[in-house]
């Protein structure tokens, strides 16, 4: 890289750091001070966070709502805004977000994210079946989230959700030794 291009690169790296709220390498650059104190920087940070929230609420509504009801959605958004590996493409952002939560320490969040991830994959044309284990009845949880309500009490037990393009309802809930009703309402989130 030439010296001139290196100067442009250094400025772009500094602006990236300012946007992401990371430390900017020390230097005598009055322009960066101007940016740091500008309403434009604050506005850009606000807009990017707003778009990220909008996209996730649209493309991963179940997990977004479950995290919101747990009081953890804001911190998840902050993490996405800070991390260097957060993808820019909207479709990739949603999958990245779901991937981050399929092994969540909260079994409810992990189950919701895993189920929504399976639904998203099938909606994108994946023909393979996906199974997700739940430690409670998923139907009232998923239907409450679809309606925008907090996931209320659900009967504990060993449940298995199967998501497959080959199923007429796309999604089926099975309890050990007992085939329960399909939650056809979940079809509404398929895009």
């Amino acid at each position: 890289m030439s010296g001139q291009a290196a100067r442009l690169a250094a400025q772009q790296q500094a602006l990236l750091a300012l946007l992401k709220g990371r430390p900017v390498p020390a230097g005598d650059d009055s322009y960066l001070d101007l940016v740091r104190d500008s309403r434009g920087l604050t506005m850009l940070q606000m807009i990017t966070a707003w778009w990220r929230r909008f996209d996730l609420e649209r493309l991963a509504p179940l997990t977004s709502r479950a995290l919101t009801h747990e009081g953890r959605f804001e911190s998840a958004l902050t993490r996405l805004g800070r991390d260097a590996d957060t993808p820019a493409a909207i479709s990739a952002l949603a999958m990245h977000f779901l991937d981050q939560h399929v092994e969540d320490t909260d079994p409810l969040i992990a189950a919701v994210a895993s189920t929504e991830r399976a639904l998203t994959l099938v909606a994108r044309g994946d023909r393979s079946p996906h199974e997700v284990r739940w430690d409670r009845d998923p139907a009232p949880v998923l239907n409450a989230l679809l309606a925008g309500h907090p996931p209320g009490p659900a009967a504990p037990g060993d449940f298995r959700v199967t998501v497959s393009a080959d199923r007429p309802t796309l999604i089926a809930v099975e309890r050990r030794g007992d085939l329960a009703n399909s939650t056809s309402g979940v079809r509404r989130i398929i895009r």
């Binding site: 772009q12 957060t86 820019a88």
Partner: peptide, 13 residues
Amino acid sequence: YTTVDGEPLGTML
């Protein structure tokens, strides 16, 4: 530009 060193800015500058 929308990326720096491959990292998305999340906006365009």
